[in-house]
């Protein structure tokens, strides 16, 4: 009785609590990213200015860079200046391109956002039905062969790194070995959206395998629960037991696990962009690291980090829509 009353009290506005809590969380993550990106430059071994100026620089160059980075000022002063700049939208100027970093980000963001969001949608839309289907077909130890085959195929595809998969896809679908050359092997503006097909395919195959294995395992767990026996006892038809009774429970546990896989997918996107020469944030940050273009690195760390945080938030919102109880805290305990 007592705990029922407590639950009622809490359920007044779970979404409001959630929103407040997550906004604070986002702010905290932003702060951490700000500090981390700031520290990247501070932690460069030796004299950052000399390091940045390169081997051929003379003392004047080094002094200029030192002043430009504000390295001649105390640490806290530099951080305040840096944070102030970022917050007012001034992300600095690229060493390499002599161009505002903000412009570079604006040009590159759409590419990364497209393949990341499309990738996540595809992973969830394919992996959940697939894993559930296999889970239902193999429940209680039925169809051993299917279980083994599914385990082997997904295990194999899962162990192929995204960039190797990408080269394989290029060989198969872009170069005309085996199949017709359907898609461009590298990003070409005139192909438009067709340019995105292979990159997205390359980043989703691994996560689809991982997530569908999770779903398959969770399906077995959920179908073994007592409430499934209740549904069975009420002789509900199979589709109702699977879709209406099992699916919501399955989704909560699956999405909780998949959040990790999906943020990992961002990491995959960073590498894949290099294979397909997509001018996105991933290839951008890698090029910037090679060029030691620190203002660009700093800004991209913040932006990519915030994208990951937003994706996590998205997953939690989805979870909340499916089962309001998950809004209560970060740990699903029930």
């Amino acid at each position: 009785m007592a705990h029922a009353a407590v639950a009622e009290h809490r359920s007044t506005s779970p979404w409001l609590h959630f929103a407040v809590r997550r906004l604070i969380g986002l702010a905290a993550i932003f702060l951490v990213l700000l500090v981390v990106s700031f520290l990247i430059v501070q932690l460069i071994p030796g004299d950052p200015a000399a390091g940045l100026a390169g081997a051929n620089a003379d003392l004047a160059d080094i002094e200029r860079i030192r002043h430009q980075l504000g390295l001649d000022q105390p640490l806290w002063q530099r951080f305040i200046d840096y944070a102030g700049g970022v917050l007012s939208g001034d992300l600095g100027t690229s060493f390499m391109y002599r161009q505002p970093v903000l412009t570079i980000i604006e040009n590159r963001l759409p590419f990364t956002a497209t393949i990341a969001l499309a990738g996540i949608a595809i992973v969830l839309l394919v992996a959940i039905p697939l894993g559930m289907l296999i889970g239902v077909l193999t429940q209680g130890g039925r169809r051993k062969w299917l279980d083994t085959g599914f385990g082997f195929v997904t295990g194999f595809l899962d162990s192929v790194p995204g960039y190797v998969m990408a080269t394989f896809l290029v060989v198969m679908f872009a170069l005309g070995i085996g199949v017709l050359p359907l898609f461009p092997p590298a990003y070409t503006p005139r192909f438009g959206s067709a340019s995105f097909v292979l990159p997205i395919a390359a980043i989703v195959i691994g996560p689809i395998c991982t997530v569908s294995r999770v779903v398959r395992r969770e399906t077995a767990v959920v179908l073994g629960n007592d409430y499934q026996r209740t549904a069975h006892g009420w002789r509900l038809p199979a589709w109702k037991r699977y879709i209406k009774w099992a699916l919501p429970n399955l989704l909560t546990s699956t999405l909780t696990v998949s959040g990790l896989v999906l943020t990992g997918l961002i990491g995959g996107a960073v590498v894949i962009e290099s294979v397909f020469a997509l001018p996105g944030l991933g290839s951008g940050i890698i090029k910037a690291i090679l060029d030691r273009d620190y203002p660009v690195i700093q800004a991209m760390v913040i932006v990519i980090g915030m994208i990951a945080a937003l994706i996590n938030l998205l997953v939690d919102i989805l979870l909340g829509l499916i089962d309001e109880r998950t809004l209560g805290g970060s740990h699903v305990s029930a």
Partner: peptide, 8 residues
């Protein structure tokens, strides 16, 4: 930290 892409 886990919720963050390791590659980043």
């Amino acid at each position: 930290m886990v919720a963050f892409p390791g590659l980043l």
